[in-house]
């Protein structure tokens, strides 16, 4: 495996510069346009970049989850139920709710701690379906079954449509950047190093003293929290509603596609990937139907996988370098 994306992430100097760049770019855009549709698309990108970041963090520990929608959906349900039934302000439930998928993540991590690759994929894939089943059937009295639940809005009522869109945009941006900084520093830390060794070779990681079990479970728990945060944020801002449809296969596949497109196991990759794929998707939808667009997107990703196995982020870096600026990630 050639250049080491993962270890480069570890050696990257504090990602503050990149974070500031993202904030500056987003603010600039806001100064230029208030076009509602664009703001909504970008808010979506911010929220799902958090979701992809979560998937990518778990992948950094060598665990390819194919059931991430479990966490996304549980975070949304937990936060919305806390806000509706216990009267918690959404600004609080947004952060408390994801503790549920974090716990579930720890449980799944524990249960699957000896499984890898295809085994892990099959089992996590199945978890989404069982969660949907539990939410609809066994907890139907709480979740209103297939009809789902209205979600209280995060922003105060009485804002103008534009004000709400700008508010959601800024909240999404803030949480995405915060998540980015948290994940980037985690990847550079001792814990990140442990994740990377487990990704590369569990056996050697173990005999080198890395507590493989603990770190694998930890990665799933952290991934559960972040994915849940994205789910809750999505529910309280964009969709304002949640239904069991959230536990679908597609929502488990997207973060994988975003991360692969941007660059696996780097903290920048998921953000770039979500942005590029999503914008492309919106452009496609203007010309094609949903089915055709989806197929085209997947084929486009296949091309990326085939010709740019490290994703698009290294290309961006090379572009930046070519323009003459010092690449941001090299020391």
């Amino acid at each position: 495996m050639a250049p080491t994306a993962a270890s480069r992430a570890r050696r990257t100097p504090p990602s503050l510069g990149i974070a500031l760049g993202m904030v500056a770019g987003a603010a600039l855009l806001l100064a230029v346009t208030r076009e509602l549709f664009l703001l909504q698309v970008l808010t979506f990108v911010f929220i799902f970049a958090i979701y992809a970041q979560s998937w990518n963090l778990v992948a950094h520990s060598g665990q390819f989850s194919l059931g991430h929608a479990t966490f996304l959906g549980l975070g949304g349900y937990a936060s919305i139920l806390l806000a509706r039934n216990l009267g918690l302000p959404p600004a609080v439930s947004l952060f408390v709710g994801p503790l549920l998928p974090a716990l579930v993540g720890l449980g799944i991590g524990r249960l699957c701690v000896r499984l890898r690759e295809w085994y892990l994929g099959m089992v996590t894939f199945g978890f989404t379906a069982i969660t949907q089943l539990l939410v609809v059937e066994q907890f139907g009295w709480l979740t209103n079954r297939w009809d789902g639940l209205e979600a209280p809005r995060l922003l105060p009522a009485g804002l103008s449509v534009e004000g709400a869109a700008v508010g959601n945009y800024l909240i999404g941006l803030g949480l995405m950047v915060a998540t980015y900084l948290a994940v980037a520093s985690l990847m550079r830390s001792r814990t990140g190093l442990a994740f990377a060794t487990i990704h590369d070779n569990e056996l050697v990681a173990g005999v080198s003293g890395v507590d493989v079990r603990r770190y694998r479970i930890l990665a799933m728990g952290a991934g559960g929290y972040l994915a849940g945060l994205a789910g809750a944020l999505n529910g309280h801002t964009l969709t304002r509603h949640i239904s069991p449809g959230v536990f679908g296969i597609e929502d488990s596949i997207w973060p994988l596609l975003y991360s692969i497109a941007g660059g696996l196991r780097t903290p920048e990759g998921p953000i770039l990937g979500t942005l590029v794929v999503r914008l492309f998707w919106e452009l496609m939808l203007r010309r094609l139907g949903g089915f055709e667009s989806l197929i085209t997107i997947v084929l486009m990703l296949a091309v990326i996988v085939r010709f740019f196995p490290q994703g698009l982020y290294p290309l961006v870096l090379r572009g930046v370098a070519a323009v003459g600026a010092r690449p941001a990630v090299r020391r």
Partner: peptide, 28 residues
């Protein structure tokens, strides 16, 4: 207790430096 492997097994996506760091960070 530390060991080597008959067929060397480095961590492929870490640098050589990081490979050597692992045992320092997580070992005794």
């Amino acid at each position: 207790i530390a060991r080597t492997f008959q067929i060397p097994q480095p961590f492929p996506t870490l640098t050589i430096l990081e490979n050597a760091m692992v045992a320092l960070v997580f070992g005794p």
